[in-house]
Amino acid sequence: MKINLGSVVLSAGVFSLFGLPAQADHHMEMQFAPSELMTCAYKEGKDSDDLRKLTNAFTKWVKKNDPGYTYYVLSPNWHEDASGWDFAWIGNWGSGSDMGKGYDAWMEDDDDVGPMFEDVMECNYSLSAVTPIYGEDGDGPWERGVVWFSRCDIEDGAGLGDAVGAHRAMSSAMAEMGQSSVSWAFLPTLGFGDTEFDYYHVQAWPSYSQLGMGFDNYFNKGGWKVQADAQEDTVSCASPNMYTFRLVHAAN
């Protein structure tokens, strides 16, 4: 379907886990920020030690030239097919303007870090427009944790605001059971090709213990009923792919 953005009422705290803007109060419309997604494979003879050297050099460049950039490295855990790549990279800015300034600085002078990327890995690149769904005051930035990406389709007659509301209802119910998590909608923007879904529902937890609590709450304490009621005639999502994430650098 064609996504109808419209407007939506959100209540949210500090969505700083992935360096994205917070919704300051519950009367604001949805706000979006850019996020680049990369799935990467090591070149022959390269490994995590080479990636560490690269990220050290790139972080030094970012601190000087792109202060609004935050990035994470993700390792696939439960995943339908990660055979073609070794790790993922998520980078975020607080605004499109910040992204543009960062890319201009990179194009002007990468301080010889660019060739390191070409030497260490081969990646597929895409850009998403991201809006917060749910979080608690003070959440993030978590240095490590677990995150899932689930492909979602908005039902005919519903809009993105309805879908976000359904996810919020589910997250609120799980939070009342003691689970700590934050979540966003990642809308395909550039480099995705002909997508067969409307957006990614992305949800993160600070630990596998919190994820495990969510498992119990969902299957044994009625979470699935809340989800079924909230998402009925609104949105349907595929089984998520799960990753372990590690913060490499947080924006200044």
Rank of each mutant, 00 (worst) to 15 (best):
A33I: 04
D139C: 09
W85G: 08
M170N: 03
H167N: 03
Q210L: 01
E44M: 12
M107F: 13
D110K: 04
S183Y: 02
Q31M: 06
Q210W: 05
P141R: 05
D139R: 04
A228V: 13
Q179I: 00
V235Y: 13
S128W: 13
F245D: 09
E155A: 08
L247P: 04
K64I: 10
A57P: 04
L54M: 12
P240F: 11
D198W: 06
M213P: 01
D25R: 05
L211K: 10
H201T: 05
M38A: 14
D162A: 03
I3F: 15
G140C: 09
V113A: 14
Y72H: 11
A175T: 00
D104R: 06
L17S: 13
D156M: 02
A24V: 01
L10H: 09
M99P: 02
M170R: 01
G100V: 05
S16Y: 11
A82K: 07
A163N: 10
E143I: 01
L211W: 10
Y243S: 05
F18G: 07
S239W: 14
V73C: 07
L190K: 00
T131F: 02
A169I: 01
V164G: 01
A129H: 14
V226G: 15
A33R: 00
Y218L: 05
M213T: 03
V73N: 04
M242S: 07
V62S: 12
G222Q: 14
M116W: 15
W106F: 13
G94V: 01
Q227W: 15
Y134P: 02
G96Y: 10
G135W: 13
S236D: 15
S97L: 09
Y103V: 01
V202F: 06
G161S: 02
H167E: 09
G212C: 06
M28S: 14
W142Q: 11
V235K: 14
G212P: 00
C237Q: 11
T131G: 08
D119N: 13
A238M: 10
G68V: 05
A185N: 01
R168V: 05
S128I: 05
Y72V: 07
V120R: 10
K225R: 14
Y218R: 12
D216G: 07
T195E: 10
M1P: 03
Q179F: 00
A22C: 02
V146W: 11
T59R: 09
L17Q: 13
A24R: 00
G161D: 04
G13N: 10
A24W: 01
Y200H: 04
H26Q: 08
L211Y: 10
A175I: 00
P141K: 07
T189D: 11
Y72E: 07
V9E: 00
C152F: 13
G159C: 03
N241M: 05
D156V: 06
C123G: 14
L5W: 14
T55P: 06
T131R: 00
N4Y: 11
R151K: 14
E29A: 12
G214V: 01
R246S: 12
E118K: 07
Y200G: 03
C123T: 15
V202Y: 05
E176M: 00
G157H: 11
